[in-house]
């Protein structure tokens, strides 16, 4: 474990906590894409299959359970909570997220480290996580005013993977140049997708104005 990866995990955890707080405190999920949240549940389920078979550390197991639990409860709130589900922008959150999941799965069948169920599903989760934010970014462009909590949520979500990129550079130089192409390239794509959001988020923060994405 290095400080970059710990910072990345904490940023990721903070983003999820901010989203849960927004939903629970305001009893609203306006501006949040259910499609992206469902993709994240799939990412965690397919990535943490070895949760009970491989023990790495108390931290690793705890965080996996927290990520699984929080992501599933967010989807539950948005789908089934009687008050929250009324606030879901159903008619704007129209991204066909299966068009994202299927190519990722096919790519995982083609390009992986070894051809086993666990490894192919893990690889699928890495590819899927890279594009899972797309429905959320599309929804942000459609929803005129983005509330601060939603903006902060997306910013922290993008920042966590950027910190992971730094962690991979650090591990490359400190762990006998071990190469991890699949997470590296996926992580690069994932972080790049946030580029224009980062630009407008930082601009709105600097000029102290409402965050607005161009349509």
């Amino acid at each position: 474990m290095n400080v970059f990866r710990l910072a990345g995990d904490m940023t990721h955890l903070l983003s999820i906590i901010i989203l849960l707080l927004k939903i629970r405190a305001t009893k609203s999920c306006t501006g949040i894409s259910l499609k992206t949240q469902e993709l994240y549940v799939i990412v965690f389920l397919t990535r943490y299959l070895d949760l009970f078979t491989k023990y790495i550390s108390f931290y690793n197991t705890t965080m996996k359970l927290v990520f699984l639990g929080t992501s599933i409860s967010i989807v539950w709130y948005m789908r089934y909570h009687k008050v929250v589900k009324q606030t879901y922008n159903k008619d704007q959150d129209t991204f066909r997220h299966y068009f994202l999941a299927i190519p990722c799965f096919l790519l995982a069948l083609l390009i992986h480290h070894e051809f086993t169920v666990i490894e192919v599903l893990w690889t699928f989760s890495i590819y899927l996580e890279a594009v899972a934010i797309l429905p959320q970014l599309v929804l942000l462009q459609r929803s005129r005013n983005i509330d601060n909590l939603t903006g902060n949520y997306v910013f922290l979500l993008g920042a966590y993977r950027a910190l992971y990129l730094v962690n991979w550079v650090y591990r490359y130089f400190t762990e006998n140049h071990l190469v991890r192409w699949i997470p590296w390239l996926s992580g690069l794509v994932q972080t790049t997708l946030y580029a224009d959001f980062f630009y407008y988020y930082i601009k709105s923060w600097k000029n102290n104005e409402k965050l607005q994405l161009p349509a």
């Binding site: 995990d9 491989k54 996996k64 480290h113 071990l178 991890r180």
Partner: peptide, 10 residues
């Protein structure tokens, strides 16, 4: 490839 890559990340 033979290099074992540890899956110790989240």
């Amino acid at each position: 490839t033979d290099t074992y890559i540890p899956k110790d990340e989240l």
